[in-house]
Design a protein around this nucleic acid. Structure first.
Length: 112
DNA sequence: GAACTGACTGTAA
DNA sequence: ATTACAGCCAGTT
């Protein structure tokens, strides 16, 4: 029985699904980190996987991906990525302070 | 299946 | 505060 794997669909990845669940639960106006999301999803040490999961997330899912930043509140998304500006724009739209590629501490939440 | 690639992190200078 | 870099590890080539 040959099994088709169509185009590897990120939605079939259970790890991605866990990550998306966690991200979806971040409240508006608050921000968490890749590492924190990973731990909350039961995937300690896999911060990079979180980044990948967000990149691969279907648009129609409307995940609040912009509420995830690097350790210490730094925006890690490379300048080459058009998404970087978009992230900052969306954060500010939720009244999150973004200055010099950083977000204010008071907006950080701990998911653990 | 080895090599490469990061939307990462912590440490060190 | 900044920069550099090794360690990290699943997904892609």
């Amino acid at each position: 029985m040959v099994r088709f794997k169509a185009l590897r669909d990120p939605r079939d990845n259970p790890l991605f699904q866990e990550i998306w669940n966690v991200v979806a639960a971040i409240p508006r106006g608050q921000v968490s980190t890749y590492g924190s999301v990973a731990r909350a999803a039961g995937l300690p040490g896999r911060a990079r996987l979180v980044g990948r999961a967000l990149r691969e997330s279907p648009k129609e899912m409307m995940l609040p991906w912009h509420r995830v930043v690097g350790a210490g509140g730094r925006i890690v998304l490379p300048p080459a990525e058009p998404g970087r500006r978009e992230q900052i724009r969306r954060l500010r739209a939720e009244k999150v302070l973004v200055r010099e590629g950083r977000i204010g501490r008071s907006f950080m939440i701990d998911l653990e």
